[in-house]
Design a protein around this nucleic acid. Structure first.
Length: 257
DNA sequence: GACATAGTCACCCTTCTGAT
DNA sequence: ATCAGAAGGGTGACTATGTC
């Protein structure tokens, strides 16, 4: 999808991008191979060519920061397929209090599609460890993370993640999936482990409080709850990505080839 | 002149959370 | 169960600018 994306060029929006597709310019390579394009000024064509050459180079070297710089936040989902193998699903749990009023992160769960890593406050959740873990990835998947998880991490750990971010809450909405994470999971038939299937964010706070009082089973349940959240984010990302691709209409132009 | 895009602004929507 | 507040993204209207 990313190589079908021309809206990373300044002055090209959704309409012009569709116009390019309908004129058979489906990939960056098609754009570069064309000597001229009817509705693109020749001076701009030279400038766009240079930009796309750079984009190809940065895609080859997997320099994802280049794309987070030029791609609008709402289009970060387009990088998902190319960077899925370097992506991490992130979900934090807190003590339930707001930022600045005693709110703290009780655990951070990271799932890369194969392996789940829980970082627990008081055990191994530190800024250094968090940075070490996150530096291994260059694409982040969250649900509502742009409002909740990432600002919370920024406030508590002074951590700002400079990588593309696939926020499934807002992208899901655009793909016709409204509601909270649990509701969307139920709609799509995505299952959770029996032990935590009816848990909510409030239960996570309750479990943390029990864990603080020495209840190791509560901590285990909290970790299970968080693991289900992060693992399901990957399943959801796959579905939302396919829906958003279909919405662009690119498939119908590719079929004509 | 027609059309498309960018930028800005205000308002709306949704989620999460706490209070009742 | 319901409501209100906070926060950020979405959306639409408007204006300015660029291109054909």
């Amino acid at each position: 999808m990313i190589k079908n994306t021309f809206s990373l060029l300044q002055g090209i929006g959704e309409s012009l991008e569709k116009k390019l597709w309908s004129n058979g310019i489906l990939y960056w390579e098609d754009f570069l191979a064309a000597d001229s394009i009817a509705f693109i000024n020749s001076r701009n064509k030279i400038w766009y060519d240079q930009h796309l050459q750079l984009a190809l180079k940065n895609l080859a070297t997997r320099n994802v920061k280049y794309f987070s710089k030029f791609l609008k936040q709402r289009d970060h989902w387009r990088l998902y397929k190319e960077f899925r193998d370097a992506a991490v699903a992130l979900d934090i749990e807190t003590n339930g209090l707001p930022i600045g009023h005693g709110g703290c992160v009780t655990m951070v769960g990271l799932y890369n599609g194969f392996h789940y890593t829980p970082l627990i406050k008081g055990i191994d959740l530190t800024k250094k460890r968090l940075e070490q873990e996150l530096n291994r990835y260059n694409y982040i998947i969250t649900f509502y993370g742009s409002v909740f998880d990432l600002p919370f991490l920024h406030h508590v750990y002074d951590l700002w993640l400079d990588v593309p971010h696939f926020d499934l809450c807002f992208c899901g909405r655009r793909a016709g999936l409204k509601g909270g994470l649990k509701k969307i999971e139920a709609t799509l038939g995505i299952m959770r482990e029996e032990a935590v299937k009816d848990f909510s964010g409030f239960d996570a706070v309750r479990l943390w409080n029990h864990a603080q009082q020495g209840n190791s089973q509560a901590l285990e349940l909290l970790i299970t709850y968080n693991r289900c959240d992060t693992a399901n984010l990957f399943l959801l990302a796959d579905i939302i990505f396919e829906r958003l691709v279909a919405q662009t209409g690119i498939s119908s132009f590719l079929c004509l080839r």
